[in-house]
Amino acid sequence: MNIKKYEAFVRAVERGSLSKAAEELGYTQSGISHMMQSLEEEVGFPLMVRTSSGIVPNAEGELLLPIIRQLLNTNESLEQYIAKIKGADTGRLRIASFSSVATYWMPSILREFQKDYPHVEIQIVEGGTDSIDAMMNNREAELCIYTGGEKLGLEWIPLCRDQLLILLPPRHPLTERAVIPLEMLMDEQFIMPLAGYDYEVHHILDRLDHYPHIRFSSCSDYAIISMVAEGLGISILPELLLRNYHGDAVVRTLTPAQYRIIGMGVPQLRTASPVTQNFMQYVRRYVTTQGEQVFF
């Protein structure tokens, strides 16, 4: 079994192009085409089809894709363990996270990690709850940092409690209050995170007798902030996102106080690669030094 063929197959369907996959992996166009033909002959059936939008896996390819990704992850772990035994820490780590984590945690964590492991390639993929769930289920990432991963059957490590705050347009009547009762939101115009992107806000509003008036929805936290600042409605967003906000919108606290739990997860800690395990230690260290309400 030639692991390079499987790597080329995954890269081709991720990029939707044999030529882009060849360029990234250092092959010629004819070389990668020959590899794909050889792989399909090896398994005994086609794996891909060409469409107007590019290369996509067929039904058989879709069935094999998660298993092939798991195979590649296992091979990556093996290579990292061999490199570690030899004294050279190398490898690749793919991290799925909320945009707020990627924006406000990752730069500092990566700076410290790269000082000690300069040869490790880090890929960060931002997404909402559903997309991160899918990435972990399909083994498209080795580590996730978000909320709710315990329900996936991951080995889940709670990291810290992040308060959810109310964001108000400037000169909104509720800005006169330092703390806003949750029930006062029921008659407000509200900007809602899209379902599947952020469930915490939906869970909070479920406790009310009725929902506020949902005027707009968005999968972008930053779009929601801009819409609130323009007076289009109010919203609820995490403190991690708002603590460095200095725009026109006004941040206030809810009562009773509302929180989300940010954690990190891996499919199995015992089989996680050395690079993944090392990076997790840097995440823990960062959270501790930031004065967050930690859980470890």
Rank of each mutant, 00 (worst) to 15 (best):
E155H: 11
I157L: 10
I157S: 08
I157G: 00
P158V: 06
P158D: 08
C160A: 15
L164R: 09
L164Y: 13
L165F: 07
L165T: 07
I166T: 03
I166R: 01
L167P: 09
L167M: 12
L167S: 06
L167H: 05
P169D: 03
P169M: 00
P169I: 01
P170F: 03
R171E: 15
R171P: 00
R171I: 08
H172G: 05
H172L: 04
P173G: 03
L174N: 07
L174H: 11
T175Y: 01
T175K: 07
E176C: 01
R177G: 03
A178I: 06
V179N: 10
I180K: 09
I180G: 04
I180F: 06
I180N: 05
L182R: 12
L182G: 10
E183A: 15
E183F: 14
L185R: 11
L185P: 13
D187F: 11
E188W: 10
Q189K: 15
Q189G: 09
Q189M: 10
Q189H: 13
F190E: 06
I191Q: 03
I191R: 07
I191W: 03
P193D: 02
L194N: 13
A195D: 10
G196S: 11
G196A: 10
Y197R: 12
D198A: 15
Y199Q: 14
Y199M: 12
E200T: 15
V201F: 04
H202K: 04
H203D: 10
I204S: 02
I204E: 02
D206R: 14
R207D: 09
D209A: 09
H210Q: 11
P212G: 01
P212C: 06
H213I: 12
H213K: 14
F216G: 01
S217G: 01
S218C: 08
S218N: 06
C219N: 13
C219V: 09
C219I: 05
C219T: 11
D221W: 09
D221P: 10
Y222V: 04
Y222L: 13
A223H: 11
I224K: 01
I224T: 02
I224Q: 01
I224M: 06
I225C: 06
I225Y: 02
I225R: 04
S226E: 14
S226M: 04
M227L: 06
V228D: 00
A229E: 15
E230P: 05
G231C: 12
L232R: 15
L232I: 08
S235N: 07
I236R: 04
I236F: 08
L237N: 07
L240D: 09
L240C: 10
L241P: 09
L242M: 03
L242P: 08
R243M: 12
Y245R: 05
Y245K: 00
Y245L: 02
Y245N: 00
H246P: 00
G247R: 05
G247V: 06
D248P: 09
A249G: 15
A249Q: 13
V250N: 00
V251K: 03
R252C: 01
T253H: 15
L254P: 13
L254R: 14
L254W: 12
T255C: 05
P256I: 07
P256L: 04
Y259P: 08
